[in-house]
Amino acid sequence: MTAVQKRIVINKIALTLSTLSALIALAFLFWILGVLVMKGISALNWNIFIFEGAPPGYAESGLKHALVGQAILIGMATAIGVPLGILAGTYLSEYGKNSKLAHTIRDISDIMMSAPSIVIGAFVYAVVVIPMGHFSAWAGAIALGIIMIPVILRTTDDMLQLVPGELREAAFALGAPKYKVILSVVYRGAKAGILTGVLLGIARVGGETAPLLFTSFNDNFFTTDLNAAMPSLTVTIFNYATSPYEDWQQLGWAAAFILSMFILGLNILGRVILFAGKKGK
């Protein structure tokens, strides 16, 4: 066998192995997705949206409490994380730029983005739950909000930087003060990007379980009391799935399916908006 022939054979083997690993990965991931869809859809029914949690064995049990709790937690986390993230991103892109402080903030928030979320939960437990004396929706929302800030901050920073400098200069040339230029020109130019960042930020925290375990904790019943423990889809999935009761496990699959569809939907929507925004230019 000549050297060239040998290379051709090695090439075939290596490419086959790569393709094989891609197929293996795909098989596992679609296995998980398949199970999620099959189990989830078969467990779905109207009762889920009508009834709150019930002891195992009750026919009239559902996920209303967890769905509403999840919505409340995400809504509050968004209200905390989005304004702070956007303002901080605005500082980095419009004021801090290449200063040392701006770079430090970018670096730290990059690390924060990958930091263990359960640690954030422990932190919020110490600074919110202990002083309050009990678990609460507030604590859960604050934990999620903290996780959200770096995601929004970085996308806002990146997206604002994509707005061409001439646009800002043109607005300045008309005599507009800087805050007006940012609010009316820069934000408008980066609208699609910021919106995508917000959606991805919501998707990111929407799937978090660990930081809620000991902040908003869980509750098997419907509640809107922000000062009390608040049920969430994710913690409910964890509790129901690890329970020995089959009907709870079923509800767990239904919750897992609803949660995944919500998060995939947000991710897809975010991409579509960004793509449409790019195309429009």
């Binding site: 997705l33 379980t209 999935i237």
Partner: peptide
Amino acid sequence: LAAIPSVI
């Protein structure tokens, strides 16, 4: 798939 919650 990277976005699917780890609880799942």
